[in-house]
Amino acid sequence: MPSSPSSSAQAARDALAVRLTHLRKDAGLTGKELSARCGWHPAKTTRVQKGEAAPTDADIRAWCVACDAADQTEDLIATARAVDSMYMEWRRLHRNGMRKVQEDFYTLHENARICRVYASNGVPGFFQAPGYATALMRSITNFQGTPDDVTDAVAARLARSRFLYQGGHRFVVLVEEWVLRARIGDVRVMSDQLSHLLSVIPLASVSLGVIPFTAQRAIWPLEGFYLFDDRHVVVETLTAEINVRQPREIADYMKAFRGLGAMAVYGAKARQLIESAIDAL
């Protein structure tokens, strides 16, 4: 598994390594003895126990058999897979196209009562107009060199907007002013997108704040993130989706969101910034 910038992923990997190490010690085996039983070099055992290498399903099965603990195999495999899901490279997620990921996000929104979003690099998916979503997802597909299913992926992304109008969901969104000015697509696409933002501001389910260029920064610009209730954060980097579920880290994201929200403007002032961006086109 690639090294993750999220400490929760490393913490979970370390916890798995500790469990495997205890399993070996409980069996009364040295690292060399376990390696011999598993048929691999002792250096591999060392890397696994230090959390430097992620064991495969086959590695875990062999480890458990060597320790006469086959009854723990499935639980350890499930734990390892959960660690792996914390850091998911976009090229891996998009290896068959983007539609599946959009459907997974649909489920996350469906199950969340409150979705808090900090958008520093683009309009959130559930606020996107068709032209904007198409232009953005086309550029992502071209950059990653993954299969082109943009038409289906856009349809799946736009389906999320239904939660703005039904189901009792709440969307608390903070957008950097830069997002309003960055031209994704041509002038017509951006004009339609910004006009669409104006149309969602009055919705009872929506709180939209814009952080002006001129804001005195108490919190520096961050990578965009989605906070689903108080249980799950999805952070989007250039290369990967990071899933954070560790309570301490979630609390940090909540704290950052409050700090960012304090710098934002809302209501008429937010509308003015959006209208100004339209005029600039």
Rank of each mutant, 00 (worst) to 15 (best):
E241L: 08
I278L: 12
D148F: 09
E177W: 02
S3V: 08
V187P: 03
S207P: 00
A36K: 13
F163P: 03
V175E: 03
R188G: 05
L93Q: 14
I274L: 02
A256K: 07
D252Q: 10
V244M: 06
V235G: 07
S4D: 12
N142W: 09
S85M: 14
C38K: 01
K255T: 14
R19Q: 15
V48R: 03
G131T: 10
A119W: 01
S120P: 00
I114H: 02
W63E: 04
Q72R: 15
V101S: 11
Q10M: 07
R170T: 12
P221Y: 13
V175Y: 00
A280C: 05
M190F: 12
P2G: 08
A256H: 13
T73L: 06
A27H: 08
Q166T: 11
W220C: 11
I201G: 01
V179S: 01
F228A: 07
T134M: 11
A36T: 10
K25N: 12
L273F: 02
I140C: 15
F105S: 03
P42C: 05
G97C: 12
A54V: 07
R160W: 13
R170K: 14
N121K: 11
S120E: 02
M1Q: 02
Q72Y: 06
V18S: 01
E110N: 00
Q10T: 15
V210H: 05
H109L: 05
T73H: 06
I77C: 13
D57G: 12
L198R: 08
P5H: 03
Y106S: 05
G122C: 10
I201K: 03
D59A: 03
L136V: 01
D104E: 15
Q102N: 07
Q128W: 08
E223D: 10
D279N: 02
A17T: 10
T151R: 09
E241Q: 09
T214S: 15
A11I: 01
L34T: 09
P124K: 00
Q72M: 11
V233P: 04
R13K: 14
D279F: 05
R116E: 02
D104H: 10
E33D: 10
A11N: 10
L238T: 10
R183M: 09
I250V: 11
T239L: 04
A70H: 03
E33T: 01
L281C: 12
R160Y: 10
G51P: 03
Q216E: 04
A277S: 14
G224A: 13
M86R: 15
G122E: 06
T134A: 07
A133L: 02
T146Q: 06
N96F: 13
I140S: 11
R138E: 13
F126C: 00
T30R: 15
A256E: 06
P130D: 07
E74A: 12
T134H: 14
L260Y: 11
V234Q: 04
V150E: 02
V233C: 13
P42M: 01
F171I: 07
Q246I: 01
I219D: 03
I274A: 06
T151V: 11
S35R: 09
V65C: 05
R258M: 04
E177G: 08
A256F: 10
S4P: 13
W178T: 11
F105C: 08
Y132V: 04
H94Y: 15
R160P: 07
F127M: 04
D252P: 00
K100S: 09
E103Q: 15
S276F: 00
A135N: 12
E177P: 02
A43I: 06
D152M: 04
